[in-house]
């Protein structure tokens, strides 16, 4: 089985890369695929918190690259699902600690054990972000329906097409997918927010999913639970759909139209 490397990237910070990485990894694990999610944000480790394993980190990515620990000592097995593993990054301030040769060696080793390798990219277009996308077979472009996020996504799509290993080796291009997050159909209907079709048209890449703005996302990170484990949450269900589409299934887009509010809620309620 040939492992697939997926980078979750965006250029802009704060759009939901780590939330998406956690949800995607957990979603793939729930579908029966052995998956590891790697934090590439050296110095600003956060995936461990979002995945709820921050107290179990002993060794990290840099330790493995430097040979201070082996891979299996650093990998953290998720307590909720047997197929899910977390590979935390280091808190070192040396941003260039991720040497490409070292990362490549670790990636090859991970490919022997896993079906999917999710790379949670740092924001920006510096060394860390380039290293995170370099080995990718697929990329999930996390975008908010907002001008600066769309512009940065366009930039990162260009970088994937020119700086990834696939581009350097003239292999088939990295498969890119648009994931629109923090979407508010109500505001879109009022003309206050870019619509899914607008963003799709501007970036002209295929749409993997639309994740509605949802209270459950904050609740999930508060408790360190990937949002797909919350079956009542619209965002969780939207991520489950996105994972299914990633695996090749057809699913109708949900949560893209404003919810119909009951008369009483419209009169008295806020949400």
């Amino acid at each position: 089985m040939l492992a697939k490397v997926i980078v979750v990237t965006s250029g802009k910070g704060g759009v939901g890369k780590t939330t998406t990485s956690a949800a995607l990894a957990a979603g793939l694990a729930l579908r029966g695929h052995k998956t590891v999610v790697i934090d590439f944000d050296v110095g600003l480790r956060n995936l461990d918190l979002v995945m709820g394993c921050e107290r179990r980190v002993v060794f990290d990515f840099i330790n493995v690259i430097n040979g201070d620990a082996n891979l299996n000592q650093a990998l953290i097995k998720d307590k909720r699902h047997d197929n899910l593993f977390i590979f935390p990054t280091s808190q070192t301030r040396d941003k260039n600690a991720l040497k490409r040769e070292g990362v490549e060696r670790v990636m090859e080793e991970l490919k022997q054990q896993f079906e999917y390798i999710i790379c949670d990219s740092p924001a920006g277009i510096e060394h860390g972000a380039i290293t995170a996308l370099y080995f990718a077979d697929s990329a999930i472009i996390v975008t908010n329906p907002e001008v600066s996020s769309v512009r940065d996504s366009d930039r990162i799509i260009g970088i994937l097409a020119s700086k990834s290993r696939r581009a350097e080796r003239n292999e088939s291009a990295v498969e890119v997918h648009l994931l629109l997050t923090r979407y508010d159909p109500g505001r879109v209907a009022k003309g206050e927010m870019l619509a899914v079709d607008d963003v799709k048209e501007i970036l002209s890449i295929p749409l993997l999913g639309v994740i509605p703005e949802s209270e459950s996302v904050l609740r999930a990170s508060n408790t360190g639970t990937p949002v797909v484990f919350d079956e009542d949450s619209p965002a969780g269900r939207a991520y489950v759909d996105a994972v299914a589409r990633f695996l090749g299934e057809q699913r109708e887009m949900r949560f893209v139209k404003p919810e119909r509010r009951s008369f009483f809620r419209a009169l008295f309620g806020r949400a």
Partner: peptide, 23 residues
């Protein structure tokens, strides 16, 4: 025009320029 329409038009213009130069 709604602000979303304005956003879309501005993005289209700026990205057309940036794609030509950065790519």
């Amino acid at each position: 025009r709604s602000s979303a329409q304005v956003a879309k038009e501005r993005l289209k213009i700026v990205l057309a320029h940036e794609r030509a130069s950065s790519r």
